[in-house]
Computed example of a mutant assay.
Amino acid sequence: MDNLNELKAIWQTAKTDGLPTTAEIVEMAKKFRYQKLRNKVLSIVVGVGAIVLMFAFYLNKPDLAISTIGGIICTVLACSILIYTNARSMKRFIDMHDLSNKQFIEFLEQTRHNQLYYYKYTQVFGLLFSSIGLLLFLYEFVQKNTAMSAAFYTIAVLWTLFMCFYMRPRNFKKQSAKMERMLASLKKINDQLQ
């Protein structure tokens, strides 16, 4: 009986400050799943919409310059990369039902690994194709005026550099920090349960 009282005293003195409740954990998982699915669906819709608009406006114009056609092809490739990667990863989030704590932590670690791969490789190729596509696509329209060409290409290159070297790392750090906080709190809870 004395051991039971000691165990009860230890149980009641355990520090649970900073640990979310089970309802908060379930809500966090649902919110995470919903946000990721929403973002993936939105990315797919934007990619398909861009491809449809490209073909709708420029498919019936046989007198396009080779640079414009190259720009369209590069832009369609960038949109296709976006559509493919988001459609492929959507299955993981759709199948994310009734996971145990350990399975959810493994799921988040795999998601973090996928985000790193996307940041290092997939996003780079998508940004490369879309930037080249933009520069090639509008060449035909701005080539006649030297000042307009210089202004356009200066703005386009500055925008690409801004997106590549400022926005992309900044967004990745924010997403990564958010994922790390979520993983740390869930690991802390999981360690308490074991």
Score class of each variant (00 low, 15 high):
residue 65 A to S: 13
residue 66 I to A: 11
residue 66 I to K: 10
residue 70 G to H: 13
residue 71 G to L: 06
residue 72 I to V: 11
residue 73 I to P: 02
residue 73 I to F: 09
residue 73 I to G: 08
residue 74 C to D: 05
residue 76 V to C: 15
residue 79 C to V: 04
residue 80 S to L: 13
residue 80 S to C: 02
residue 82 L to K: 03
residue 82 L to M: 13
residue 83 I to F: 06
residue 85 T to G: 01
residue 87 A to Q: 07
residue 89 S to C: 08
residue 92 R to T: 08
residue 93 F to R: 03
residue 94 I to V: 06
residue 94 I to Q: 07
residue 95 D to L: 09
residue 95 D to K: 12
residue 96 M to E: 07
residue 97 H to K: 09
residue 97 H to D: 08
residue 97 H to E: 12
residue 98 D to M: 10
residue 102 K to V: 14
residue 102 K to D: 15
residue 102 K to S: 15
residue 103 Q to P: 02
residue 105 I to S: 05
residue 106 E to K: 13
residue 107 F to H: 15
residue 108 L to N: 12
residue 109 E to A: 05
residue 109 E to W: 05
residue 112 R to L: 14
residue 112 R to A: 15
residue 112 R to C: 00
residue 113 H to Q: 11
residue 114 N to E: 13
residue 114 N to P: 01
residue 117 Y to K: 13
residue 120 K to D: 01
residue 121 Y to T: 08
residue 122 T to Y: 10
residue 122 T to H: 07
residue 122 T to G: 02
residue 123 Q to P: 00
residue 123 Q to W: 02
residue 125 F to V: 08
residue 126 G to M: 06
residue 127 L to W: 01
residue 128 L to D: 04
residue 129 F to S: 03
residue 131 S to Y: 05
residue 131 S to A: 02
residue 132 I to M: 08
residue 133 G to N: 01
residue 134 L to H: 03
residue 135 L to M: 03
residue 136 L to M: 11
residue 137 F to W: 04
residue 140 E to N: 13
residue 141 F to W: 07
residue 141 F to R: 04
residue 142 V to D: 08
residue 142 V to A: 10
residue 143 Q to T: 13
residue 144 K to P: 04
residue 144 K to Q: 12
residue 145 N to G: 08
residue 146 T to Q: 03
residue 146 T to R: 00
residue 146 T to E: 06
residue 146 T to D: 02
residue 147 A to C: 06
residue 147 A to N: 14
residue 148 M to A: 11
residue 148 M to F: 12
residue 149 S to H: 09
residue 149 S to N: 09
residue 150 A to K: 08
residue 150 A to G: 04
residue 151 A to G: 03
residue 151 A to P: 00
residue 152 F to R: 09
residue 154 T to L: 13
residue 155 I to T: 10
residue 156 A to M: 08
residue 158 L to K: 03
residue 159 W to E: 11
residue 161 L to D: 05
residue 162 F to A: 14
residue 162 F to T: 13
residue 163 M to H: 01
residue 164 C to R: 07
residue 164 C to Y: 10
residue 165 F to N: 06
residue 166 Y to L: 15
residue 167 M to Y: 09
residue 169 P to G: 11
residue 169 P to D: 09
residue 170 R to H: 10
residue 171 N to E: 11
residue 172 F to N: 00
residue 172 F to C: 01
residue 174 K to M: 07
residue 175 Q to W: 09
residue 175 Q to S: 15
residue 175 Q to T: 12
residue 177 A to I: 06
residue 179 M to C: 04
residue 180 E to C: 07
residue 181 R to D: 06
residue 185 S to Y: 09
residue 186 L to K: 04
residue 186 L to F: 14
residue 189 I to N: 05
residue 189 I to M: 13
residue 190 N to H: 12
residue 190 N to A: 08
